[in-house]
């Protein structure tokens, strides 16, 4: 059995820890929630470390665990999540007012999307995954990815137009 220091999970934390945390943060919009989500993901990855090791893309495998964990937890706390998002208001950002407003509008619009739609947009526009990679991570067909992205973008566009 691999020792903790040289386990695939330890390597992932070393090489992709920041990347996983940023993805978790973009999904959860909360530093604490991102830490918890990432930590829980790593704990699950540790239990499945042989499969993670054997995966063609271990980082994608772990990301898949994260997205499913996020789906499970966000389903339970959806209302609270929106309230917190509105309460935070991105007030801590140091950008000029217009930029803050822009961030706020998009953040709010993303929060209104389904978890899968938001996940697809994060993976496409932040992680720069192509549709095949997103389908692999989310566990669906590429056509479904395109559909989720299209519907997510349409909803986001509608929200932004209403907000502007």
């Amino acid at each position: 059995m691999a020792q903790p220091a040289d386990s695939v999970v330890a390597r992932l934390v070393h090489e992709r820890g920041d990347w996983l945390l940023r993805c978790a943060y973009l999904l959860t919009r909360s530093r604490d929630a991102a830490l918890d989500l990432t930590q829980d993901t790593l704990a699950r990855a540790w239990t499945a470390r042989e499969r993670v090791e054997a995966a063609d893309h271990p980082d994608r495998y772990v990301l898949r665990i994260m997205l499913n964990l996020h789906r499970t937890t966000s389903r339970r706390s959806r209302l609270r999540e929106v309230e917190l998002l509105e309460a935070q208001g991105l007030a801590a950002a140091a950008d000029p007012v217009a930029a803050v407003d822009e961030q706020h509008r998009i953040a709010h619009g993303l929060a209104l999307l389904s978890d899968r739609q938001r996940s697809v947009l994060v993976l496409r526009y932040w992680a720069d995954f192509d549709d095949a990679a997103i389908a692999d991570v989310i566990g669906c067909r590429r056509a479904t990815v395109r559909s989720l992205a299209a519907r997510g973008m349409a909803a986001l566009k509608s929200h932004l137009e209403a907000a502007e």
Binding site: S7, A10, L21, R22, A24, Y25, R31, A34, W46
Partner: peptide, 14 residues
Amino acid sequence: ELDAPSAAELVVPG
């Protein structure tokens, strides 16, 4: 992503 926490705050399982 600039506001995301750092991996230094993670605990490696095991």
